[in-house]
Amino acid sequence: MKHRASIFVEEAAILSHEACPGEQYILRLQAPRTAARARAGAFVHLQCDALLPMRRPLSIMRADAGAGWIELLYRVVGAGTRRLAQRRPGERLSVLGPIGRPFTLHDSHPRPLLIGGGVGIPPMIFLAQEIHQKNHRKLPGRTQPWHPLLLAGSETPFPFKPRPSQILIPSLPPEVIAAIPLMEDWGIPSRLASGQGFPGCHDGYVTELARLWLAALDETALAEVEIFACGPHPMLAACARLAREFGRPCQVSLEEFMACAVGGCAGCTVAVRTPRGPAMQRVCVDGPVFDAETVFR
């Protein structure tokens, strides 16, 4: 079987564990085998605490294959993440990963629109990293082939300090200038949205920004767009509607309560449409990335 031995169990040392506003944490783990194989959209299944009988799935925000680390961003939402938040640098956590079907970039669609909501932002950072690396590997003298835009929305404070963007996006309102610092460093345009009145952010839904941007593209540019989204279910549904309205392909990353995370228990399924009719597919190994049309139509 081609999938054999594609997921690793690693006793990963915590390299850093940074508390951010809104009970959010950035966790960096030394997990070289996972880091070497991780792709944007993949996740890890973590032992948070010896007293909890189940692991917790967390998406990967960044990976450095050379240095052998992975970085996760999570918000405290229950018993598992609450206990995870108490773990200190130097301690070890059992990591099962990397798991799942990742996002797929298509050369025919070099204008990826990345939309992240809340704790759905991390996979979008990872996808932006992959795009940045693709652009970075370009031959000298060539123009950058990929033109991504990352839009992120959150109702809790962002887990980074937004920075006024130096990258102009003419089709978006000029007062919407808050951007993700890492994206600025990478030269990737990004903008933020929130209903909480955070400075420089769009006052509303992230998908409203997406609509403005899509509507301003000419036909040639629009044909180069593919949408990638991760976030709360209503946001993903809105992304799917947007994709349909503009006739663009859309990949969404889903989450569901999970037990085994390797395809054994069928505990994390979602209803999808397939050419052979309705089916229940596993978020862990059939996803977590799905074609939005199969999930939301």
Partner: peptide, 8 residues
Amino acid sequence: EEYTRVAG
């Protein structure tokens, strides 16, 4: 076959 995804 599902668990054979896990190395080891």
